[in-house]
């Protein structure tokens, strides 16, 4: 939770190294390409997209589900959701929620980019119920635009790598990945989009072209294959020649800390 003190800009001194959230923002931001149109959720996806704008992708167009096309969000004024005026700063165009979501359906979005609470082997995401949906242990906030984005765009998901979050089968498919794997996504009416990458604080994950099961694409510095396996709730193959990512640079971290001085999203 944020505090009055933090909002007044009395931020903590920068710490050496980086937090897990900062690592997520840097690594996922690097996956975005200049000229792309990315549909971003608030939090790490937003931070990563702005970081990309300020480094290698100045021509990145960000879409927010509140109805915003192409904003440049101001450092230190991150929006609390994708539906407040802070999201609209220097945008090219404001439209209704329905219109911006229809851009996904029409095919104008290159990448969908969001966080996740629980994910499974085939990249299905749950943000609705922990436990049995008819008698849930926890009722979560739900899909928002998540289902629409995941149904219609190529996806990048940024999330913490924990065994309880990486499960064999999610309790509830809020946002579809490859459903039961293989061709099942297309067979059930979703011929477009699908999971591209899952970025965690341990590595970068992808999906096998045929089985559509999760695989490891890269490990972050200092992370072993065993670390990934120990923190994943299903058997995940790690190729013997898996590469290691380049650690966040001081420049990337400096930009992130300027963007989020109160550590709303990077604590």
């Amino acid at each position: 939770m944020t505090t009055e003190r933090a909002r007044a800009g009395l931020s903590l001194a920068p710490v050496p190294g980086y937090t897990g959230s900062e690592l997520l923002a840097v690594m996922s931001g690097r996956l975005l390409k200049d000229g792309q149109t990315v549909f971003a959720g608030v939090g790490i996806p937003l931070l990563a997209a702005i970081l990309a704008q300020k480094t290698h992708a100045p021509g990145l167009t960000i879409l927010f589900e509140g109805g915003v096309i192409g904003p440049f969000v101001e450092a230190g004024k991150l929006p609390p959701s994708t539906n407040e005026q802070r999201c609209t700063r220097r945008a090219n165009m404001l439209v209704s929620i329905t219109e911006v979501l229809l851009m996904l359906q029409r095919g104008y979005v290159d990448v969908g980019f969001m966080g996740g609470a629980q994910i499974d082997r085939f990249g299905n995401l749950n943000s609705s119920f922990i436990g049995d949906p008819n008698a849930p242990k926890i009722r979560l906030p739900g899909t928002g635009g998540g289902n629409d984005i995941a149904s219609l765009a190529d996806m990048i998901v940024a999330m913490k790598h924990e065994k309880r979050r990486f499960v064999e089968k999610v309790d509830f498919i809020t946002s579809p990945g490859f459903l039961d794997g293989g061709q099942t996504r297309a067979e059930r009416g979703l011929p477009a989009g699908g999971m591209f990458r899952v970025v965690t604080d341990l590595g970068i994950l992808g999906f096998d072209d045929t089985s559509r099961a999760m695989t490891v694409v890269a490990l972050h510095p200092g992370v072993s294959a065993q670390d990934i396996k120990a923190n994943t709730g299903f058997d995940i193959p790690v190729p013997a020649d898996v590469p290691t990512t380049e650690a966040p640079t001081p420049e990337e971290l400096a930009i992130l800390r300027e963007l989020d001085p109160q550590q709303l999203y990077t604590a």
Binding site: T98, L104, N147, S151, F172, I173, T174, P176, G189
Partner: peptide
């Protein structure tokens, strides 16, 4: 939600769409 209101606004009983398919939602 948006297309349900839009259908209501258009005076038609439904709208077709391409998300939610395959999901538990």
């Amino acid at each position: 939600m948006g297309l349900r209101y839009r259908a209501g606004a258009m005076g038609v009983p439904f709208m077709p769409m391409r998300s939610m398919l395959g999901s538990d939602v």
